[in-house]
Design a protein around this nucleic acid. Structure first.
Lengths: 278, 278
DNA sequence: AGCCTACTGCGTACGCCATACGCTTTACTG
DNA sequence: CAGTAAAGCGTATGGCGTACGCAGTAGGCT
């Protein structure tokens, strides 16, 4: 497939599959230029919506709020976007406007993948509202697709079959999102309670300790004891731990271990869905 | 701490920290029996709310909807629950009413952990609305705490330090939730489009193929080619792949590998937040 | 030149939502 | 049997997303 063919293909069938805002985002649009010139632009709308989310949280993002900031009527937005859900999708895409660096040549896959994951996490930390948006399927918006591409290419050094790479990326992606969600929860808890994160955590362990007795909850009791004696809180350590485990796990695909063995063949077995998120 | 002390402690300080509904859920409640008898019960309310979510989706769950089913006024619910958010929290807890089997004695940790993860996923598959609820922090409701306990205890065979076990559980938990979310997304997409999941997937790969050209997206092009040639879709394979990777990774903690090494000491380094979700 | 018509802008309206407030009714405590 | 604390609940407020349809604009065609 050459690029020109793609352009034609997009014009022909891309638009019928893609919704209004998505088509604009991909730069596929028939501008017949018939009626009055559009007074707004999708870019501005998304930009304003992001700004609102950034400063007042995702819950402050409403169609009327965004329209008011733009000095337009609420319904004007629906000329550019099919629904609020689509706006959210595009906001999310905007958050990934800055692309991750492509893997350097000869870079070990492990380094490349770790960088990708950390850059992903950095984006989600910078825009905490992103993880509050339910991703409604696999990545389809322009920037998300770029991240998807870069993620896959950072895994190419593993030599895994395509589908195993996909599954691996999904695993990493899930971990990044999970971590970002926890952090967002914690931040919100501290904002609501007016305390800092460390206090919120201490208070959690305390409450859990009160709620659980040793007989019924031996494992938790041990955990609470260990947690309360240990002090400082860094989410980074938890994230790093999980990431290392995942990378170790990927590195060991196909290596036999212990009694039950699984060769990489087991990996190819069936099809599954693509990773959502980035 | 003995159990009786716990009971007292709960009465004293548990209630001030716990919100109304949570206190009831834990069975900590001062029923002074002053006013009229409550006409409803928290249990019934949550049960009805769950039923609505089960049959019509989470978005159909509103205070007035639940109240109507119960034959009560909307505001009556607020005698039992502090806010809708709390109701959602309790609904989530109710979904985990059936507890996972505790690890059998002498059971290898790997088997126990895998069972825990699969049972967790089974719950989320049975109640897809659960993953749509943003978990607002670490587990604090009764059933979730039991799952938390069982998860930790299934990891006790690893011999890892408490905090590493916690981090591991969080990793597994994140993967389970991520997988369940993807499946829920897919199910919703197929419901909305009126097609089955396989078609939705095919259509996704097709769209992605149209959107991406080989020069700009080499890795994705390769993936799309592999994906479209491969047919059947099972989410289970993807989940299993990730889970195996994680378990491998956990099993290899502390084992040196390659040039850069990380001993288990690096695992203990700092504190981090507890796993949310179960 | 001027009409046609596709398109944009946007006001109005509808049916939801969560929940603050305060009045009425109830039933236990002293 | 009074006092009072709690429950029930109607009303009201201030949102929300979006369906609908009218009015006005400007490019394309005759």
């Amino acid at each position: 497939m050459r690029s020109s063919e793609k352009g034609k293909a997009l014009e022909d069938e891309g638009r019928q599959a893609l919704s209004r805002g998505l088509a604009t985002a991909w730069g596929v649009k028939d501008r017949p230029g018939k009626g009055p010139k559009p007074g707004l632009s999708l870019e501005r709308i998304v930009e304003v919506a992001v700004q609102v989310a950034e400063t007042e949280g995702l819950s402050a993002v409403s169609m009327s709020r965004v329209a008011t900031v733009l000095g337009a009527g609420t319904m004007a937005l629906y000329r550019y976007v099919e629904s609020k859900e689509e706006l959210l999708m595009l906001m999310m895409d905007a958050a990934f406007r800055e692309h991750p660096l492509p893997p350097a040549p000869d870079e070990p896959w492990r380094v490349a993948v770790e960088r990708w994951a950390r850059q992903h996490l950095a984006v989600l930390r910078k825009h905490p509202w992103v993880v509050r948006i339910a991703l409604g399927g696999p990545p389809i918006t322009p920037n998300q697709v770029v991240w998807f591409e870069r993620g896959m290419s950072s895994l190419s050094g593993t030599g895994l079959p395509e589908m195993a790479k996909l599954d691996s990326l999904s695993l990493i992606n899930g971990w990044v999102r999970h971590e970002a969600m926890l952090e967002a929860d914690l931040r919100e808890a501290e904002r609501r309670a007016g305390t800092n994160a460390a206090e919120a955590l201490t208070s959690y362990w305390h409450t859990l300790g009160v709620l659980t007795d040793v007989q019924r909850f031996p494992a938790l009791s041990a955990l609470v004891a260990a947690a309360t004696s240990d002090a400082a809180a860094t989410s980074d350590a938890q994230f790093t731990f999980g990431l290392e485990r995942i990378l170790d796990g990927i590195a060991h695909v196909g290596k036999r271990r212990g009694p039950q063995r699984r060769t990489p063949r087991s990996v190819r077995q069936k099809r599954n869905h693509p990773p959502a998120g980035t």
